[in-house]
Structures are given as structure tokens and as C-alpha cells.
């Protein structure tokens, strides 16, 4: 699954990148846990101002239906106020102004903040929080913008992420729903009912899990689920799958990637050996 064409960074490093490609759609299939897969979201101040909040004790910001913690904002810095333990400033990105606070504990922080002059363009990465009823950014990083194409790029990213997240919402209603019923039966976490079935567990589960699958994914899964293969500690090599099922390696990788996302198979000793999850 690690061929460069298929490698999906967003789902592999979910939480790390700020482009919510695949992962945000996946988020819809399990709403309770992965709505906040957004690691870092580029936003405009206007979007922050319109963010809805949830949770009483620890307020959460929701933009386009996605829980947002860390954001990137690019704008001009004003009203810089250097204090003993922190530096406060307003960031104006042309859509609005947001108050920012950067805690200064080490000389690195001081140097970074010293470089910021009034009125210059700054790229700010920080944690959205609500303090005494006011929304503010707890800043991790504030650096001057040196290439001004970045300003354009930032706002285009804002549009892109807005589109991705809101599109995910719309599709979520129609597409993710059936996905959910499938995965609730097939993935071991949800499939408690599977475990209650005694003797012919393997067969029963194959019937369950294959419901929503394409024929070929089913073939790959069936092969990996053969008792002899389940017993192999190292798992099955992709080449072996390719030979046994008489299919090109790319097709195998596609199927494996799909099955892995569904939580039905996992890589064992390296990225080329796979095993089926037992008991599903």
C-alpha cells in the first residue's frame, strides 16, 4: 500500500496534516470518534467568529461540522503588547481580527516574537480557545511571511478545506450511512454479535464482512482468512497473493488498502506481509 500513487497521507497520518482529504470522509462513518481528525485547519477570522461551540467544560469549536483545535491564520499583526510571561497581539487577516497570545518561556520564543513588527504579515499557528468568554488564539508559532504568494495560497487553502469539509457533510448523509451499517457488522470493534456466534465463526463472519465488498476484495480477504494462513505468524506476502489470485500486484495493493481501512487486515512484519484480523 505504500506505492507512492496510492499512499494516502491524510489517512496514514490522520491528525498530522491539514489537508482533510480522505480522512474527513471517513470521519463521517464513525461520527463519535473521528470528527476531530483535523490536525491543523487553515481558516479565516470570519470562519472562527462563526464557529459554533460544543461542550460546556472544555469548549470545542466546530467549523463546517468538524471539531477544530489548531488553526492556521495569516494576517497583519497589530497592537503587540510584550509582557513578562507572554506577548499579546491582534491578528487582522482582512476578514476580521482575533486576539492572540504567545507564552514566552524560552529565549527561542522571545527571539521569534522580537522579529515581529507592527503591521507586518504573520503566519500564526495556534490553538483556538475561549477565555473569559472571548475567543483567542493560544499561539505556538508566529513567523513573518516572506513570500507573499503564501497569503494568496492560505486563503485558497481556506476555501479548499471549507469545500472538503462541507462536501463531506453533504455526502455523509447519503453515502456514509450505508457504510456505517456495513462496518458495524464487519469490524471487530462493533461486531460484538459475531463473537457470540459459536462454532462456525469464520464462515459466518465471511458472510457478514463480504456484504458490502467488491468481489475481488472478498477474494483477498477469503485467502487471508484461510485457517492455514491465519496460523502463519508472518502473514502472507503481497507477491503470494498476487500469484495465488492471479492478479496484478497493484490490484492486490488496492484491495489490501481497502481491507486495512476497514480494519479487517493488518500489516505484520513489514509493509508487504498481511494478516487477517482473527475473529471477524
Amino acid at each position: 500500500m505504500f506505492s507512492s500513487s496510492q499512499f494516502d497521507a491524510a489517512s496514514a497520518f490522520s491528525g498530522g496534516g491539514f489537508m482533510p482529504s480522505q480522512s474527513s470522509q471517513f470521519a463521517n462513518s464513525t461520527p463519535s470518534q473521528s470528527r476531530d481528525t483535523q490536525g491543523l485547519l487553515p481558516v479565516t477570522v470570519k470562519q472562527i467568529s462563526e464557529a459554533s461551540r460544543s461542550g460546556d467544560e472544555k469548549p470545542n469549536f466546530i467549523i463546517d461540522g468538524v471539531h477544530v483545535n489548531n488553526v492556521k491564520v495569516i494576517g497583519m499583526l497589530f497592537n503587540k503588547n510584550v509582557r513578562s510571561s507572554d506577548v499579546r497581539f491582534d491578528l487582522d487577516d482582512g476578514t476580521g481580527r482575533v486576539e492572540c497570545r504567545r507564552w514566552v518561556t524560552e529565549s527561542v520564543d522571545t527571539r521569534e516574537m522580537d522579529a515581529l513588527e507592527e503591521g507586518i504579515y504573520v503566519r500564526v499557528i495556534g490553538h483556538l480557545q475561549s477565555f473569559q468568554g472571548k475567543t483567542q488564539l493560544n499561539v505556538f508559532s508566529a513567523r513573518p511571511v516572506t513570500n507573499f504568494d503564501e497569503v494568496t495560497c492560505h486563503f485558497i487553502e481556506c476555501i479548499y478545506c471549507h469545500l472538503q469539509n462541507s462536501k463531506g457533510q453533504l455526502e455523509g448523509g447519503a453515502v456514509a450511512q450505508p457504510q456505517m451499517t456495513d462496518s458495524s457488522l464487519s469490524t471487530p470493534v462493533w461486531g460484538a454479535s459475531n463473537r457470540n456466534q459459536p462454532a462456525s465463526m469464520n464462515n459466518a463472519s465471511v458472510q457478514y464482512t463480504t456484504d458490502g465488498f467488491k468481489g475481488f476484495d472478498k477474494l483477498v480477504l477469503n485467502y487471508l482468512q484461510q485457517p492455514a494462513n491465519i496460523d502463519r505468524e508472518m502473514g502472507v506476502h503481497l507477491n503470494e497473493l498476487s500469484q495465488q489470485l492471479k492478479a496484478p500486484i497493484e490490484k492486490i495493493k488496492d484491495a489490501i488498502e481497502f481491507l486495512e481501512r476497514e480494519g479487517l487486515v493488518y500489516s505484520s512484519i513489514d509493509d508487504y506481509h498481511y494478516k487477517a484480523v482473527e475473529g471477524c
Binding site: 476578514t95 494568496t152 486563503f155 476555501i159
Partner: peptide, 30 residues
Amino acid sequence: LWTNFGDTFDGSNYDQLCRLANGEFKHLFL
């Protein structure tokens, strides 16, 4: 306010952004 944007700025990208920010995605900006 004036900000020097350098000598190599990509004007066409900016132009597209202006159109998007006044059109379909105005609500993200204004």
C-alpha cells in the same frame, strides 16, 4: 496600509482568489 509584496508575486493566482472571495465563497471572507 501598504505592504511590499516583492518583485515576483503571482498576480493571476491573486486574481482568481479575488473572484472566489467575491463570489461563491464570499461568506468565508465578508
